[in-house]
Amino acid sequence: MWLSLLPWGFVLLGLLPLWLFPRQESIYPGMVFLVAALILASAASLYARAPLGPQVRLFWVLGLGVMSSVVAVAASRDLAQVPEDMAVMAAVASLLGACMFLLGLFFLLRREVPGLPTPRQMGFHHHDGVMPYAALQALAPSLESLSAVRPVTLLLLHTRSDQPGAELLQYLRQPDMVFQLKPGQFLIALQGSDLEGAQIVFRRIRQNLVIRAYGVLPLQGMSLQQALVQLQGELEHFYLTQH
Rank of each mutant, 00 (worst) to 15 (best):
L157T: 11
L157M: 06
L157S: 09
L157Y: 07
H158R: 14
H158Q: 14
H158L: 11
H158Y: 07
H158C: 05
H158I: 04
T159V: 11
T159M: 15
T159D: 01
T159L: 14
T159H: 05
T159F: 02
T159S: 07
R160P: 01
R160G: 07
R160V: 08
R160F: 01
R160S: 13
R160N: 08
R160C: 02
R160E: 14
S161D: 12
S161T: 07
D162L: 06
D162G: 01
D162Y: 00
D162Q: 09
D162I: 00
D162E: 13
Q163A: 11
Q163K: 05
Q163F: 14
P164Y: 06
P164G: 08
P164H: 03
P164V: 03
G165S: 03
G165E: 07
G165D: 04
G165V: 06
A166Y: 00
A166E: 00
A166T: 03
A166V: 03
A166W: 00
A166K: 01
A166C: 05
A166R: 01
E167C: 00
E167W: 08
E167I: 00
L168H: 03
L168I: 00
L168Q: 01
L168E: 02
L168F: 04
L169E: 02
L169C: 08
L169R: 12
L169M: 07
L169K: 07
L169V: 05
L169G: 12
Q170T: 08
Q170F: 00
Q170D: 06
Q170K: 11
Q170E: 10
Q170I: 00
Q170A: 11
Q170P: 00
Q170N: 06
Q170V: 05
Y171R: 06
Y171C: 04
Y171E: 13
L172W: 07
L172T: 13
L172G: 10
L172N: 08
R173L: 12
R173Q: 15
R173M: 13
R173I: 05
R173T: 12
R173D: 15
Q174T: 14
Q174P: 02
Q174W: 14
Q174K: 15
Q174M: 12
Q174Y: 14
P175I: 13
P175E: 13
P175V: 13
P175W: 10
P175Y: 11
D176K: 05
D176C: 10
D176S: 10
D176L: 12
M177N: 12
M177A: 14
V178R: 08
V178L: 08
V178P: 08
F179I: 08
F179K: 05
F179G: 03
Q180C: 05
Q180G: 10
Q180K: 14
Q180R: 15
L181F: 09
L181C: 08
L181V: 06
L181G: 09
L181D: 08
L181E: 10
L181M: 12
K182W: 10
K182E: 15
K182T: 12
P183H: 09
P183E: 13
P183V: 06
G184R: 06
G184C: 11
G184N: 09
G184L: 09
Q185I: 03
Q185A: 11
F186V: 10
F186Q: 05
